[in-house]
């Protein structure tokens, strides 16, 4: 030490005192955004690759080589259109899981990097809410980054009809549900089994999430139609279809909101409990 310690230390406990938890949450969000900004290029690559390839192969390559999904002609155009919601929805949920669950594995790992944030002056539930919001913000970014791809890559025209009130309320709600899902996964799955997240959670959610077909079209397989109702992505995608398109069948929008709110509350509760258990010994 070159110098003796600053006099300011004498003023013990001076500068902090009581302060609002909201301020702490915003500071934690600012930290997450700083990290995101630093890795913006990776973020975009991570978000874009899967939907880009998917849309390219199924709505550009297939129609061009005469293997149109949906049956050719106007059906192809319909497929491109119904896929818009599915691909945006999958990007939202996938990104939120990645943004919340994966860092937690490191943060709770050997070094307990989370500790400095867990020791910020607010209760642990504040940290849980911050994680959920951070995941939600990144999920909305992901949805926004992917949106132009599904509009401009398909070979057949995409017909959008945007219902703004639904879009503006549904996207944040979907993003928050995705954030709670990410935090639930991140706090319940042991860090050393992270590869399991993809095998047992992410893959079923995405393949059975009404991404590539509207939920209503599952009627011929009625048991599956019922089973997939436990999948939050089904409601996200059905809601996005209501918000973005006409002519594609979708679930009654009231049920979509109801289900997403229930998911947000239940997963929010489970994930706050889970984080608390992991942070406080």
């Amino acid at each position: 030490m070159a110098k003796t310690i600053d006099e300011s230390i004498k003023a013990q406990g001076g500068s902090v005192g009581r302060m609002s938890y909201v301020r702490v949450i915003f500071a934690l969000l600012a930290r997450d955004l700083a990290v995101l900004r630093k890795t913006a290029a990776f973020f975009v690559i991570r978000v874009v690759m899967q939907p880009l390839l998917f849309v390219f192969v199924f709505t550009y390559v297939f129609p061009k080589i005469g293997q149109g999904v949906g049956g050719g002609g106007s059906k192809e155009a319909e497929f491109s259109t119904l896929l818009v919601a599915g691909v945006v929805g999958i990007s939202i949920i996938f990104q939120a899981i990645q943004a919340v669950a994966l860092p937690l594995v490191q943060e709770f790992g050997y070094t307990k990097e989370i500790e400095d944030r867990a020791l910020a002056p607010m209760p642990t539930w504040g940290l849980a809410i911050e994680k959920i919001l951070s995941g939600a913000v990144q999920a909305v970014f992901a949805g926004a980054v992917v949106f132009p791809i599904v509009l401009f890559v398909p070979a057949t025209p995409v017909h959008l009809h945007i219902d703004w009130p639904v879009l503006i309320t549904l996207v944040p709600l979907a993003a928050i549900v995705s954030g709670t899902l990410g935090l639930t996964i991140g706090t319940l799955i042991p860090p050393n089994q992270v590869a399991l997240i993809f095998a047992i959670i992410v893959l079923p959610i995405t393949f059975l999430g009404a991404v590539y077909y509207p939920w209503a079209s599952l009627t011929p397989i009625s048991w599956l139609k019922d089973v997939v109702l436990v999948n939050p992505l089904v409601y996200i995608n059905e809601g996005l279809r209501a918000a973005l398109t006409t002519g594609v069948p979708h679930m009654e929008i009231g049920y979509v909101y109801l289900a997403l709110i229930v998911f947000a509350l239940v997963l929010g509760y489970v994930s706050i409990k889970g984080l608390n258990r992991r942070v406080v010994g």
Binding site: V16, R31, Y110, T111, E113, I114, D116, P123
Partner: peptide
Amino acid sequence: AEAKAKIGVVPQSNTLDRA
């Protein structure tokens, strides 16, 4: 939360934020 404002902690392992 109030207690956290009054304590500074240096844990046994390196808990610096690697990001």
